[in-house]
Amino acid sequence: MTQTPVTDSAVNPQVAAAPVAVDVPMMRLHVKILRFNPETDKKAHWVTYDMEAQPGDRMVDVLNEIKWYKETGLAFRRSCQHGICGSDAMLINGRNRLACKTLVRDVAKDGGTVTVEPIRGLKVEKDLLVDMEPFFDAYRAIMPYFIHPTPFPAKEQYQSEANAEKMAHSSNCILCACCTTSCPIFWVNGSYIGPAALVQAHRFIFDTRDEAKQQRLGVVNQNTGVWRCRTAYNCTEACPRGIPITQLIEEVKREVMFGQS
């Protein structure tokens, strides 16, 4: 974040000025944002902001700086800003990333340019804000909840370490949409449920306590499901949680082939 004068916290009292390490040199940065205002623009257009940031600042800090002090109309989602809520997925320097997990030094050199665009394949509502509803529709389609029609046993339902391991990766998903919106198939075919929904399906399909495995396999076996995956690996590269998504999707494919009754 740029070195902000003390008076800035008076401008926006909710925002306490972040502590600035004084001995760290500042970087000059051109932040090029693809902006779109549905009320005035027909087409999205690039706007460049000249900023200063420390190498260890996150991109979300830079965007906050722009929003708070330069361009209050800039729209983008963020909430926890610590890589947990999955709100601030965006296309930074040509790759999907969470702005709160991307350090300035990893995407730009001093005096360099960073491009920021909304994630692709979902309708842009304003600037970096997209309509996430189709994404969550796909999530709902795989029934992302525990289904157990038979009465629960009186004692504890044992989950072995080996069985828990099967869904160790898929249960890490934070639904940020980095994967789904990096998928070339999803860009051209919005009806594909996408990697995120398939990871969620994997989480329940491989949960030994769940009783709706066949139903879920039926959902992912539809023509909008797992077979749309053409193994481009963009999802795996984009996942901010390090989930080996393509590997999980391939496991779901094999489960559909060999585990469906």
């Binding site: 070339p184 053409r230 481009a232």
Partner: peptide
């Protein structure tokens, strides 16, 4: 163009 890695180019080709 999205900066995908080998997998993306393998798919496209």
């Amino acid at each position: 163009m999205y900066k995908g890695r080998e997998g993306q180019w393998a798919f496209l080709l």
